[in-house]
Every structure is written in C-alpha cells, then in structure tokens.
C-alpha cells in the first residue's frame, strides 16, 4: 500500500458516500444516471469475485464489501425506493449501456493476462469501469443545472483513478515485475474521459459559477 493508492481508495469511498448521502438524505437522484450506477455494480461484481477465495487484508475485504454494498444499494434506491425513483429522469438517461458491455466482454476474451474465468471477468471489469461514466457524463450535458453533490460525486469518481495512476507509477519503480499494461491503459483511458468534465468543473469553481457542461 502506498499513499497514492490510499488517497485513491479514500477518494473513491468519498464519491460513493457523497452519492449515498445525496440520495438518502434529500431522497432525490436528480441528475444521477442509473445506467452508470448499474455499470458500476457490475464492475464490482465481476472484479471482486475473489472476495471469498483470496484474502488479501482486512482493509481489502472491508473496502470490497463497502463498494459492493453501496453500488447495489444505490441501484436499488433509484429503481425501487418509492420517493427516490420519482426523481429519476429515465427520459434523459437514455445511453444504451448494454452496448458498452458487449465490446468490453469481447475485448476481455481476447486481451487478458490469463485465460481463466476469474481473470477474464476481472479484465472485463477493468474495461467496463473505463467507460462506465459515459451515461453519467451524457446525462450531465442534458441536465441544465447540475447540483453540487452530483458534480462532487463525478469529480471524486474521476479523481480516484487519476490517483491510482500515480500508485502504478510508484509501484512500477519500487516493485520488481510490477507490470500490468491492461490495468494501466484502462486506467489512463478512464481518467482521460473525465478530462473535459474536470476542465469545466475547475472553471466553475474558479469563477464561482454554476457547473454547466456544453451540450
């Protein structure tokens, strides 16, 4: 464990807590893409298959349970909570996220480190996470006024993988044989997809104006 990865995990944890806070306290999921939440639930479900077979550390297991629990409960809230689901804008959240899963699965079947079920699913989760934010970014462009919590959620979610890039650089130089091209490339692509959001997010913060993404 290094400071970059710990900062990344804490940023990731903060993003899911911000979203849970928003949905649980103000009972609203306005501006939140259910599609992105479903993709993230699938990302964690396919990435943490080893939660029962490989024990790494208490921290690792606890964080996996938190990410699994929070992502599935957010999906449940938006789909089934009698008050929250009324604020879900399904006419705007129209990204065909199923079309994201298929190429990710195909790519995982061809480009992976080991051809085993767990490894292919793990690789699928990496590719899927790289594009999972797309429905949310599309929804933000359609949502005229983005509330602060949703903006903070997306910012933290993008920042966590950016911090992981520093973690991979650090581990590359400190641990022999730590080479994971697939993880690195997927992580860089994922972070780059947030580039324009980060730009407009900082602009709105600097000029102290409401965050708005150009359509």
């Amino acid at each position: 464990m290094n400071i970059f990865r710990l900062a990344g995990d804490m940023t990731h944890l903060a993003s899911v807590l911000v979203l849970l806070l928003k949905i649980h306290t103000i009972k609203s999921c306005a501006g939140v893409s259910l599609k992105t939440q479903e993709l993230y639930a699938l990302v964690f479900a396919t990435r943490y298959l080893d939660i029962v077979t490989d024990f790494i550390s208490v921290y690792n297991t606890v964080m996996k349970l938190i990410f699994l629990g929070s992502s599935f409960s957010i999906v449940w809230y938006i789909r089934h909570h009698r008050v929250v689901r009324r604020s879900y804008d399904k006419d705007q959240d129209t990204f065909r996220h199923y079309l994201l899963m298929i190429p990710c699965m195909l790519l995982a079947l061809f480009v992976h480190e080991k051809f085993t079920f767990k490894e292919v699913m793990w690789t699928f989760s990496l590719y899927l996470e790289a594009v999972a934010i797309l429905p949310q970014l599309v929804l933000l462009q359609r949502t005229r006024n983005i509330d602060n919590l949703t903006g903070q959620y997306v910012f933290l979610l993008g920042a966590y993988r950016g911090l992981y890039i520093f973690n991979w650089i650090y581990r590359y130089f400190t641990e022999p044989h730590f080479v994971h091209w697939i993880t690195w490339i997927a992580g860089v692509v994922q972070t780059l997809l947030y580039a324009d959001f980060f730009y407009y997010y900082f602009e709105s913060w600097k000029n102290n104006v409401r965050l708005q993404l150009p359509a």
Partner: peptide, 10 residues
C-alpha cells in the same frame, strides 16, 4: 511471491 499474482488492488 510463488503464488500467481493476486490482484491486491481494489
């Protein structure tokens, strides 16, 4: 380590 690489990151 001898064991095949475990994915020790989240």
């Amino acid at each position: 380590r001898g064991k095949n690489f475990q994915h020790d990151e989240l």
